[in-house]
């Protein structure tokens, strides 16, 4: 039983679980968590291949990608929320005229 629990198996298992999780979970934030599981699997794989420097860099870059995901998700969530909330007609009109002025300045 225990001989299955080595680095290879664990990393493959992590990656597969992560992959399935990323695909099947629907909420973006859940997905991001599963992405980090996936990347942990990749990290383990790299370690098991004994490329220390690559592993080091992966360790730095993985959180980076998670940060990017989170930032983007928060931003998009806000955008969507704002569009749901204040896109009543008057505001939209307001926005449109305001922007037409702006565009005429910036578009030149």
């Amino acid at each position: 039983m225990l001989e299955f629990i080595d680095l290879t198996t664990i990393s493959i298992a992590l990656m597969i679980i992560g992959a399935i999780g990323v695909v099947l979970l629907k909420k973006p934030l859940d997905k991001v968590i599963m992405v980090s599981v996936l990347e942990a699997g990749l990290f383990l794989a790299i370690v098991s291949f004994r490329y220390l420097d690559v592993a080091f860099l992966t360790a730095v870059l993985d959180p980076l990608s998670i940060i990017v995901f989170l930032l983007a998700l928060i931003k998009i969530n806000q955008v969507r929320k704002s569009q749901l909330n204040d896109y009543s007609t008057v505001l939209k009109m307001l926005k449109s005229t305001e922007n037409s002025e702006k565009n005429s300045e910036g578009g030149k």
Partner: peptide, 10 residues
């Protein structure tokens, strides 16, 4: 300011 002005116009 701009919003007020444009809302006036609208």
């Amino acid at each position: 300011k701009r919003a007020i002005a444009s809302s006036d116009r609208i």
